[in-house]
Nucleic acid binder design. Sequence first.
DNA 1: CGACCAACTATCCTAAAGTATACCGGTATA
DNA 2: TATACCGGTATACTTTAGGATAGTTGGTCG
Lengths: 130, 130
Amino acid sequence: MPISGAIEDKRVCPDHASSEQCTKALLPVQDALDILSGKWKIIIILSLSFGTKRFKQILREISGISPKMLSKELKELEINELAERKVFDTVPVTVEYQLTPYGKTLKPLIGELHDWGAKHRKRIITKRSN
Amino acid sequence: MPISGAIEDKRVCPDHASSEQCTKALLPVQDALDILSGKWKIIIILSLSFGTKRFKQILREISGISPKMLSKELKELEINELAERKVFDTVPVTVEYQLTPYGKTLKPLIGELHDWGAKHRKRIITKRSN
DNA sequence: CGACCAACTATCCTAAAGTATACCGGTATA
DNA sequence: TATACCGGTATACTTTAGGATAGTTGGTCG
């Protein structure tokens, strides 16, 4: 006897939602993940969403990251046009990083991530203390 | 001479936004990333957001994933109470996976990811064809 | 009998991710 | 003189993620 296979949320998943539709919906998500994946990229973007920052400043704010990783990740963000590197001819040289306008389009996404993370954090902390 | 260090978006980053505030904002995001990171987890959640699915069905829908990875990732989703595994005593045995109510709270986040990914996809495809 | 189904598990392996530590040239500060 | 700052590199290393392939258990089909 076959099981029901009931899909409980008809709004999100109408009965006719085929596997192909699902597979198709995965593509944009995979594209997004491709350039946001890794342990640090989103964290760095969040940090820059607070404003222009200098290299050492980011290094200090993000605990645990090494200069090598920060350097590498910033380069990748630059390549993908999410962040911008500006060099000032001061002595010693000053380098500033900031989000590009395109990078700023990630703010709603990161906002959601922050909100969900905050709720999740509460949840796990509450659990532990029980 | 010091540079301006001007922060262009006072709405997001008031002048008094200290490094500590920024560091603090990172925590919830890191918590979220901790359980969502990896190549497949978000993809699997998205797939399940379309409705209850069986193991082989997910395997077919998500191209490129191996049974080993799918199995591993599903277990982790279970541990974090984002997904649920139901075994039916049919012949042969049937196993269904679905999002828990808690897992469903990720839908807005994944929606944002999908939307941004779709725009990004357009952007890179347009670029390539130029 | 042999092949195939579902739902995995086991084993082996590689490539990439990430860490740790040290170092650079030039300047300023104690 | 010694130390620290800046914006990184260089080197060496470990860890982990993920891929490829095969096998398992119990049952059905032809």
